[in-house]
Structures are given as structure tokens and as C-alpha cells.
Design a protein around this nucleic acid. Structure first.
Lengths: 199, 199
DNA sequence: TGGCGGCTAGAACGAACGCTCTATTTAGGG
DNA sequence: CCCTAAATAGAGCGTTCGTTCTAGCCGCCA
């Protein structure tokens, strides 16, 4: 039997499918089949229908991506190296997936832009969440708060964009380039010496 | 009567709709209605069906976006200022459209990632096209060729990502932040003095 | 005036969509 | 052992999808 619960399998399958083909491009029946569940089970756990499944899937992708990001950021003390580690991590998993498993929320976010749906809000929350992770890392590295804000926003934007570019071109190059340039950019900010991480 | 031809109206309407709600989320009948054409007209000009319309729409968006980019890049001699001008231009038109008219190809590109369709190729070509514009600008500003390559790739990625972030958050801030950081990044590259633009 | 493409117009088809509904199976406490 | 609620199973609803098809409209050359 399966270790994971039916509900979890549905959410995970939905998250992966939405990540790969978008929200509108993913059908409830396809989710059920992929999760090895039936339509009845899906509507049992999510009586509110497709949108509820989508929201749960987005939130799952949010946390999953946040974990990857956090691990990469923690792998290096120097903030420049940490950001570069992020791009390396993204490039690796992107190549391994055959260039299809990119950011888990971008596609859904773009499709539901004008709709002010719950999905839209979940995507916005995910972006803010990831930005916060980078922001905290920069702050703990001794950057000034306003610099860290601006930088964190830009770093997330660049990661987002570089991932898309890498997927479209089926190449790791855009992520490598982003890693090099972001590291250089972060390096231009002086770290307050007294606040530098204690060994 | 309408000045523009029926075919052009179809392409323009398709481009805008795909930009806003993606390729799968946009129906042929919706395109026809938006273009004030009939289904018969659409299939008359595009006998190969929806994908052919989509490809034409993507190519149209490609050129449209390239024109905006080119104008912004040419508005300033200094490459840092030119890149900042791009982010300002994007922020302006994004706000004016109510945060719905972003990059005309990202949504379609993400939806068709695994499909190796003609649409996919058109999106990849668009990204390469825009990257080329930035690359030429940087090269003419005296940057070394390899630096210009890396930078151009990253600048396009960041613009792409910042646009998405701005749309999701319904705020110009991500684009402003990207403008500031990209200008700073470009500024870290020394311009070969002899090649600097002749007045 | 007659005919002939270029274009417009929309009815109709099979497939797939999200969703509802009723049955059936499973698990646990009296 | 039975009863109840949770979970599974899938047929079928109305709608919309992309596409096909035929019929009609228009302007041009003969």
C-alpha cells in the first residue's frame, strides 16, 4: 500500500501538474489519475472543487520551494555565496527534471492575474514568503535593512526569471549567469564588520 | 469601419488575451469575439487552427515588446541608466493596464514547456531576441563581450521576474527595485574609455 | 450580366471540462 | 455483530472546447 494518505497524494500530484502545465491546463480527472485516487475521493477531501485543490497545491509548492531555498541559503555563510548556491541548486533540479519542474507557482500566478481568486493570493503569499527568507539571510549578514529589502526583492525576481529562461532554453546557462551576477551584486554591499556572523 | 484588417485584429486580440490569461486559458471563440471577427474568419486565415493563431500572436507580442525595449534602451546613453529606463517603462505600462498586461510570452511559455510545440519555439526566439537587444546596447557601451553576454541574460531574466512579481503584488516596487539593483550591477563593469560612445 | 475567389457567418460534432449524484466498501466503537 | 461515518468508486449532468462544414455575401474581371 501507499504510505502517504490519499489527500496528500492528491495535493502532491496537483502541485506537480500545476507546476508543469498550469492551473487551467490541469484537469481534476487528471489530478485524480496521477494521484491514484478517484474523482469521488478528490471531491470528498475538497468539496469546494478545483480551486480548493489548486490552493492546497500552491501552498504545498510554496513550502517545498521554501525548504529548498532555506537549505541553499544556509549552506554558505557569505551572502554572495549563498545566493549563488541557490542558483546552483535550482539549475541542478531543473536539469534533472528535464527542464519541466520549475517554480511551482509562476504559471498559476500568471494565469489567474485578473481574477482576484484565492489562488492568486496564495501565489502572492508564496513570493513574499521566499523573499522573506532571502531578506533574513541578508540582514543576518550585516546588510542595512533597506538595502536588504531591495536586494531580496530583486534576487527573488531574478531567480524567478532565470528559472523561466532556463526552462525555455533548456539550458542551465541563464541560472549560472544569474548566480554570477547576483553574487557580484551582493558583493558590492559592505557588510557592517561588527555584525558579521560570530564564528 | 475598422482601419486594421481582420487578420491583424485577430492576431492582436489573440496576443493580448494570451498575455493576460495564457494560451490554454484562451479560447478560439473568445479570440474571435474580442477581434470582432467570426469563427469562420479565424479558420480562414489560420487553417491550421489554434496553435497557428497562438504562434502568430506570440510573434506579434515579441516584436511589440522588442520595440518598447529598444526605445527604452535608446533613450539613455549610459547603459545603467538605459536599463533603469526599461524598468521604468515596464512599470508605467503595467500600472496603466491595471497589472494585467505583463510580458506577452511568459504565460504561454510556461504552459507549453514539455510539449516542444511551435509556440514553445516562438517563445524561446522572443527571449533570445530581447536578450540580443540588451547585449548590443552593452557591447556598444564598451563592455567586454563575455561580460555583456552574462549581463544581458541576467537583465532579461530579472526584467521577466520583476514583471511577474510586480503583477502578482499589484505594485511597481519590484520593478523599481530591479531597476536600482540592475543599474548598480551594470555600473560595476568598467567601460573601456576609448570605445565609449562618440558625442 | 454571369461567374468566381476572398471573406464572412454560424450551426453542428465529438471530446473533454468541472461537478453532482448514488452505491459500495472500509474501519472502529457499542 | 451491527451501526455509523469516512472513504472510495464511477456513471452521468450540462457546458464549453477546438474543429469542421455548408451557405451566403461582396467586389472584380469578362
Amino acid at each position: 500500500m501507499d504510505q502517504t494518505s490519499t489527500r496528500d497524494r492528491i495535493v502532491i500530484a496537483a502541485s506537480r501538474l500545476i507546476q508543469r502545465q498550469g492551473y487551467v491546463g490541469t484537469g481534476i480527472k487528471q489530478i485524480a489519475k496521477e494521484a491514484q485516487a478517484t474523482l469521488g475521493s478528490v471531491y470528498h477531501f475538497f468539496p469546494d472543487g478545483k480551486e480548493a485543490v489548486g490552493v492546497a497545491a500552491i501552498k504545498h509548492g510554496d513550502q517545498e520551494f521554501a525548504a529548498v531555498l532555506r537549505e541553499a541559503l544556509d549552506s554558505e555563510q557569505d551572502p554572495s555565496a549563498a545566493v549563488a548556491a541557490c542558483t546552483r541548486q535550482l539549475a541542478d533540479s531543473l536539469r534533472e527534471s528535464g527542464w519541466i519542474d520549475g517554480c511551482p507557482v509562476t504559471a498559476a500566478a500568471l494565469e489567474t492575474l485578473g481574477t482576484d481568486s484565492e489562488i492568486q493570493r496564495a501565489c502572492a503569499a508564496a513570493l513574499r514568503n521566499w523573499e522573506r527568507l532571502v531578506y533574513d539571510k541578508l540582514l543576518h549578514s550585516g546588510l542595512r535593512a533597506e538595502d536588504a529589502r531591495d536586494l531580496a526583492t530583486t534576487i527573488i525576481s531574478t531567480l524567478e526569471g532565470a528559472e523561466v529562461t532556463a526552462q525555455v532554453n533548456r539550458s542551465e546557462e541563464p541560472l549560472w549567469a544569474a548566480g554570477r551576477q547576483l553574487a557580484r551584486l551582493v558583493g558590492t554591499y559592505e557588510v557592517a564588520p561588527s555584525v558579521a556572523q560570530t564564528p
